[in-house]
Simulated scan of single mutants.
Amino acid sequence: MKNFKIVLFLLLISLSPNIFSQENIKLFIKVKDEKNKPVPGAVILIDDVKQNRVANLQGVFKIRLQKAPKTITAFSPVIGVNKIDYQNGQNNITIKISKGENLLYKEKNLKEQSVNPQQFATIYDYLRGNVPGLNVSGTNITIRGFNTVNGNTEPLFIVNGTPVEKSTFSLIIPLEIEKITVLKGAETARYGVRGANGVIVVDTK
């Protein structure tokens, strides 16, 4: 029995370099705006993969990774986006994004995962439960009373006065919404052909 314990001990020692060489990195990420204020609800992407949680009310995001990332991105549909290179050994990271910087940032080759705010999981859940006059099926939105125009039923999306793509609209955090207005008929005239299927106007906090 004693000899068995000795052999087992020696075996563990021989394997230990491989066991302890595995990376286990804990990151503490702070997202701030140009005034050094926290950005709650910021979407975090690790190596261009969107995470299934967002920054908390203090703009803080914590995550444990098996290996060091190459890049970390923070995105807010209200402010903009900033992508940084990860420095090896860095655990406390601050990412600053400036107002209007790359506001129309589009996700490309990202793993689709839903964010998880307190009351509504996505902007589509918010629209389905709070905004009358809309038909919301999954991520498809149509404004009631509008017919197909050139085979397209998608309305125009306006966020804080700026037309945005649906991919950007989809990233809006429900907790950031201040007001949503649905425009029909003559109200869409100033948007021309782009507003042919109606307009959804979102103002954020």
Rank of each mutant, 00 (worst) to 15 (best):
Q90L: 15
E176R: 05
L65F: 04
Q66D: 13
L156G: 11
K5W: 09
G145W: 05
F28Q: 14
R128A: 14
Q118T: 14
R128V: 01
I200D: 07
T139H: 10
V54L: 14
K111L: 15
K26V: 06
Q66F: 08
T168K: 01
P17Y: 10
F75M: 08
V60K: 12
T181W: 01
E107K: 10
V193N: 12
D33C: 08
P117S: 12
I46W: 02
I79R: 01
R194M: 14
V159K: 09
S114P: 00
T188I: 01
R53Y: 12
G41K: 02
K108M: 13
N92V: 04
I177Y: 10
A55D: 03
N52S: 15
K35G: 00
L156T: 04
T71N: 11
N116S: 15
I84P: 09
V115N: 06
S137D: 12
V182K: 08
S170T: 05
E154Q: 15
L104R: 03
K32A: 08
G161M: 09
S76P: 01
K30H: 10
P40S: 10
G89D: 08
Q87W: 00
V39D: 07
Q119H: 13
T181K: 15
P69K: 12
K166W: 04
K83Q: 15
N109P: 00
Y191S: 05
R194Y: 11
K96V: 09
I97S: 06
Q113Y: 11
E101R: 09
Q118F: 05
T142Y: 06
L156E: 09
Y86T: 00
K5V: 13
S167H: 00
A68Y: 04
Y126A: 08
E107C: 06
Y124I: 07
Q51N: 03
Q113S: 12
G161C: 06
